[in-house]
Amino acid sequence: MGCLCCNPNRQPPFQLKTRIFGHAAFSQPVQLYQLTNKHGMELSVISFGARIIGLKVPGLNGQMVDVVRGFKKFEDYQTDEFYFGAIVGRVAGRIHPSTVKIAGKAVHLVPNTQNVHHNGGKNGFDTAIWTVQPIEEDDRNGVSGIKFRYVSPDGSEGYPGELVTEVEYRLTNRNELKIRITAVTEATTLLSIPCHAYFNLGGPKEANIYDHRLTVNAEEFTPLDGDMIPTGEITPVEGTPYDFRRAGRIGDMIGRLPTEGYDHNWCIASGPGGEPVSAAHLYCPSSGIGMEVLTTQPGLTVYTGNFLSKSLIGANGEVMDKHSAVCLETQNYPNAPNVERFPSAVLTPGQTYDHTTLFRFSVRRPQKPPVQ
């Protein structure tokens, strides 16, 4: 594996390595990039779907833990139906009906789940080959990030306008992963682009996320109908299984649901001046790893891997069954193009879509119960 940047006199605070991970259609190479900070935190991403395929962070006693579920072989990503680690777009979540109005005109988005347009359609951002360049920080004497770029043509999956999207992944020496997504369009279109990473803070040995503690800083959520489409209501979480204002054990909370798990959107209060606000916190007692999620987006979708199955084998040999990981996707409200009261997902020429999410990692030992 070759190093793209190094200092001959001392170890740089960031290192970026790359190699070929596989080959897509017409033998197009898919690159794997690994970025490491001075604490050994390591991010692994590939150019197919700009996907996160690994994220190692320090746990108790300094042990490195891979907190992201993914596959070992590129071929598994080619047949992946669950968007493991992918950048999803142009619009994430379900849009129903799939014919929507954009700038007063009826636009037919490609349905890919019955009559529902889901996560960008049949050939969304998750299946694209993105171009990549390092982001260099001269004052730090190293590479602190990488930038992915993809040009989505006019009419792709029904969306109007050529769209240029860039995704920056940066590590900090405070053990943070910062993701910034920007986009510009040549015609009025729709946009809501999250990262669909699956987290299990216990690492490959943690079979499920039942013992994880989740906090969501939201007073309201958007309920779903029987087809998992937002009803258009905005409902208080008070007195419901969707109240995570205080940390709740995910296994206990799922047990209160009428469904197989969470695949719902919470309404996050925006920060002043577009600054990221704290949307959620996830903690795993077995590893001691905590992850705070900060974002500039109005919504947080929590998906508990309800459709995963025992047939899915992860990069470290782990079985990626139902509820083996959780996605915390910062985005607009699902089905926003069909619900007037939801925040607008419209992007017009001259505007810049600008979406920042910060995953901030920490370690603490689990508290022992008091002696009776």
Rank of each mutant, 00 (worst) to 15 (best):
G124T: 10
S156E: 12
F71S: 12
S287W: 13
G155A: 04
E137K: 15
N335C: 05
G142C: 04
G40E: 03
I250Y: 07
K322E: 07
N37Y: 06
Y353Q: 01
Q351F: 00
I102P: 02
T356I: 07
T301Q: 12
S192T: 05
V88M: 08
P13A: 11
P241S: 15
V151G: 04
L177M: 08
G290V: 07
A247G: 13
Y303M: 03
R256P: 11
V30A: 01
P29A: 05
R90V: 15
R365H: 12
T182C: 08
A24G: 07
R140H: 06
D225L: 12
F125M: 15
Y333G: 04
A336M: 15
E238Q: 14
E42R: 14
I46N: 04
A315F: 11
E219Y: 14
T301A: 09
P58C: 12
L177Q: 08
I102L: 12
T348E: 11
P334H: 00
I129E: 08
T188Q: 01
G232A: 13
T231S: 09
I135Q: 14
G226C: 01
L60D: 02
G93L: 11
A86Y: 07
K56W: 00
F361M: 04
I289Q: 02
L190V: 09
R256T: 05
A218S: 03
V184L: 09
E318L: 15
I102G: 10
K122T: 09
D243L: 13
Q372S: 05
Q297I: 04
G93E: 12
G121C: 06
G203V: 13
P230Q: 14
L201C: 06
K72P: 05
G59V: 02
F359C: 01
N335H: 04
F82N: 12
Q34D: 00
G142I: 03
S344Y: 14
E157T: 10
T231Y: 11
T304M: 04
L312H: 02
G261F: 14
Y150T: 09
E137G: 10
F125I: 08
R149Y: 10
A269P: 00
Q31D: 05
I234P: 13
D154G: 14
E186L: 10
K205A: 09
I46V: 05
F342M: 12
Q372L: 10
K105S: 09
Q31F: 03
P276S: 10
E75G: 01
V88P: 11
S344W: 11
V319T: 13
L214I: 07
G314L: 02
G54N: 00
G161S: 00
D154K: 08
Y159T: 00
P276G: 07
D154R: 13
A183V: 00
T127D: 03
R246D: 05
L282D: 12
P230E: 10
P343M: 02
L171K: 02
S309N: 15
V293D: 10
G49Y: 05
F148E: 01
G274E: 05
N112R: 00
I129F: 01
L16Y: 10
E329M: 01
H39V: 05
A128P: 01
P134N: 08
N115D: 10
Q15D: 02
T304W: 03
I102W: 04
G248W: 06
T304S: 05
N9G: 01
S278I: 08
D227K: 15
T330D: 02
N61A: 09
E157F: 11
V339R: 05
I135E: 03
C5D: 14
E220V: 08
A345C: 12
